[in-house]
């Protein structure tokens, strides 16, 4: 286990609400680290609708998900948050009465005085294909991510999908694999045209196989695949030798580890107090789409409000000795100094 990173607050989720929490906490001299499973900031705004317009941000008649993320990053710059992207928080434990230990699947450990769960709909995780009997093979010979390329050396490898991930890994793993087969439902690829060209050249040279169809059945035992059946559009079924399969069908939101953190969840949401946005566990807060309370609306603007109230309460845990004086950014020289405008 690596050495613990000590901070005031760990924010789980770097979507719009998690980002704005940095601002509200920053105004109260509270330092933050953010952890997000995606490899980029913005959460759903970045993953699901970067180019789609949002019309209900107060005083901003129209902004895209990408634009909103960029603007928030600019707004929180004075507070120098630290981002830990591509990592998922797995556990939150009480270290002692005042401190929590937060760990990630990437092996990072934080010691923090409060935790803000801004996890939206949970964590984005790979979609699992609905192939009957796939479960026993998962993480043994069916993988949704490549950790070490060498794990696929000299294996009969089946890659499924037509997007950038499927094509990238096809090109990267083709030289390593014994034989690589790419399966896609149509003979047209959404991935980068240059990579499509490279893949087609490998097929033309006989260095790999491309099959058009959908995987319908798996063969193997004890978690080890031996073959897969592929159904073409005309209904004909063919078989390929398979030692390992990599399906790439994009991401979907799953509740994930939040379910294991001991909250009394309501419909996969964390109940909170609406004065503080604290959960039933002191020092643990939940803001944005992940929380629930009477009248809750899953709107970005609601999450922003929740972040502001949360910060007031979090201040008690981080700076218990300091009295909190309410100030406006328009007039407080103290706040303006923190924002770097004075």
């Amino acid at each position: 286990m690596s050495e613990a990173i000590k901070t005031d607050v760990v924010i789980i989720g770097a979507g719009p609400v998690g980002l704005f929490a940095v601002f509200q906490l920053g105004l109260l001299d509270i330092k933050t680290h953010l952890v997000d499973i995606l490899d980029k900031v913005g959460g759903q705004c970045a993953e699901l609708y970067p180019e789609k317009p949002i019309y209900d941000i107060p005083a901003v008649p129209l902004i895209t998900g990408h634009g909103l993320t960029e603007a928030l990053m600019e707004q929180i710059k004075p507070f120098h948050p630290t981002f830990h992207l591509g990592e998922m928080v797995t556990t939150i434990e009480h270290l002692d009465a005042q401190n929590f230990r937060v760990t990630t699947d990437g092996g990072k450990v934080f010691e923090t005085k409060a935790v803000v769960i801004a996890a939206g709909g949970g964590s984005f995780q790979p979609k699992r294909p609905p192939i009957a009997g796939i479960e026993p093979y998962e993480n043994k010979s069916v993988h949704y991510a490549v950790r070490k390329m060498d794990a696929f050396r000299d294996k009969n490898l089946l890659i499924v999908g037509g997007g950038d991930s499927a094509l990238d890994w096809t090109l990267n793993l083709q030289p390593v694999a014994k034989r690589l087969t790419l399966v896609h439902r149509r003979d047209d690829f959404r991935g980068a045209p240059a990579n499509v060209g490279k893949m087609r050249a490998l097929v033309a040279a006989g260095s790999m196989d491309l099959k058009i169809g959908q995987v319908c059945e798996l063969e193997g035992a004890g978690g080890q695949l031996t073959g897969a059946h592929i159904k073409a559009a005309d209904g004909t079924i063919s078989r390929v030798e398979v030692d390992a399969m990599l399906p790439f069908f994009g991401l979907t939101m799953k509740l994930g580890p939040v379910a294991n953190w001991g909250f009394d969840l309501k419909d996969e949401l964390i109940p909170v107090d609406t004065g503080t946005f604290e959960t039933s566990k002191p020092g643990l807060f939940a803001i944005g789409d992940i929380n629930t309370y009477p009248g809750k609306m899953k709107l970005i603007l609601s999450g922003f409000h929740e972040a502001a109230l949360m910060a007031q309460r979090a201040h008690h845990y981080v700076h218990p000795e300091k009295r909190l004086v309410f100030q406006y950014t328009t007039s407080s020289t103290n706040l303006q100094k923190k924002l770097g405008v004075k």
């Binding site: 979609k127 294909p129 609905p130 999908g161 037509g162 997007g163 896609h184 439902r185 149509r186 047209d188 959404r190 959908q214 559009a233 069908f249 994009g250």
Partner: peptide, 13 residues
């Protein structure tokens, strides 16, 4: 939309 259907399962014509 056709591109997006690549991320769906058991896609039919």
């Amino acid at each position: 939309e056709e591109d997006m259907l690549d991320f769906a399962f058991e896609v039919k014509p």
